[in-house]
């Protein structure tokens, strides 16, 4: 962990949180005193070296806090007299956000599976099986000839013909397993099985649809969320809404010599799972890219260019900060 702390008229501290950092290089590119350097981003991402993504030069850092304000992953924490500038009125505010509407959510877990940062947890209670499978079944033992046709056919293994005497048998139905499909009833040569599926017979109208529903809660952890938009993309009921930190486009230079199969550095550093190698070439999915630029920085062939058109950071009151931040949206990718 890299950190700087100094006491003057007020106490100021800057702390880098490596777990949240992706090594995108935005902080290094905007630091007015050039006090931030990135570590070896790709080897760190691949777990080949145990180092921090960011190193802050304690001597030259002027503790202005711009890096912390502009980090799209909240990986830099800047405090004045113990208070985080993110909570202070005078400092910039991200309007990036991700939220899941628990009312609209159907708890399908598609977002939980897709989230590249494991930031979503779906806790769900399924309806009771007994409430969904409703019916009646009985075997007329007098008519039953113990032929075992029903036992062989039953798709739920719910019927067993049990031996009860020297040459006596009883056909037993396990009602916990039976789903009243009526296969046994149709196939019985002696019409010994009486069964009905209430759901089919009554066309559901007798039942309270509430009892068929899955209930639950979907929790999004803002500390690990990177606002990539995967949840929004994949949600079948539009319950997830994401506002990304930047607007714009990541473009791929088709002239450059991408060696996707052997290199895939871009894919390895991307925090959003936005990059796929298709036919040996890197393909960026714009819909889930946050335009952080980590991929562009690690690409040895300089195949990727980040063109940001807007930074969703409000309340930037300082003119000099505004000037520096505008370099992020000038389309240079740096």
């Amino acid at each position: 962990m890299s950190s700087v702390e100094r006491e003057g008229d007020e106490s100021r501290s800057l702390k880098h949180i490596n777990e949240k950092c992706v090594g995108c290089g935005i902080c290094a590119s905007i630091c007015p005193t050039k006090s931030i350097k990135n570590g070896p981003v790709l080897p760190i991402a691949r777990g080949l070296v145990d180092m921090d993504y960011v190193n802050i030069n304690e001597k030259s850092c002027c503790l202005c806090g711009l890096c912390a304000a502009a980090c799209p992953f909240d990986a830099l924490e800047f405090k004045i007299d113990g208070e985080d500038i993110k909570n202070m009125d005078d400092y910039p505010k991200w309007i990036k956000d991700a939220a899941i509407d628990s009312e609209a959510c159907i708890y399908c877990k598609a977002c939980e599976t897709a989230c590249p940062q494991d930031a979503i947890r779906v806790q769900r209670t399924l309806p009771n099986r007994e409430d969904l499978v409703i019916g009646e079944i009985g075997v007329d033992q007098d008519k039953c000839i113990s032929c075992k046709i029903c036992e062989e056919l039953c798709p739920g293994d719910a019927i067993t013909v049990q031996k009860t005497g020297r040459n006596e048998y009883e056909t037993v139905v396990d009602e916990d397993k039976c789903v009243y499909c009526l296969v046994c009833k149709r196939a019985c040569p002696t019409d010994a099985i009486k069964a009905v599926c209430s759901s089919c017979a009554y066309q559901d109208y007798k039942f309270d649809p509430e009892t068929f529903k899955t209930h639950g809660d979907t929790i999004l952890n803002p500390d690990s969320c990177v606002n990539c938009g995967w949840c929004q993309e994949i949600c079948p009921v539009d319950a997830a809404v994401v506002t990304k930190p930047f607007e714009g486009e990541a473009s791929f230079d088709d002239e450059a010599e991408c060696k996707g199969d052997s290199c895939h550095a871009c894919q390895d550093v991307c925090p959003c799972n936005a990059i796929e190698i298709v036919d040996g070439q890197s393909v960026i999915d714009q819909k889930v890219c946050v335009l952080c630029g980590a991929c562009a920085n690690v690409c040895p062939q300089k195949c990727i260019q980040i063109n940001r058109t807007k930074i969703n950071l409000e309340n930037v009151r300082s003119k000099s900060w505004n000037n520096i931040l505008s370099s992020l949206t000038s389309g240079t990718g740096k």
Partner: peptide, 12 residues
């Protein structure tokens, strides 16, 4: 060698 240049970029 596939000319990906990863080694060039990452050699300390």
């Amino acid at each position: 060698c596939d000319d990906c240049d990863l080694c060039i970029q990452n050699c300390p």
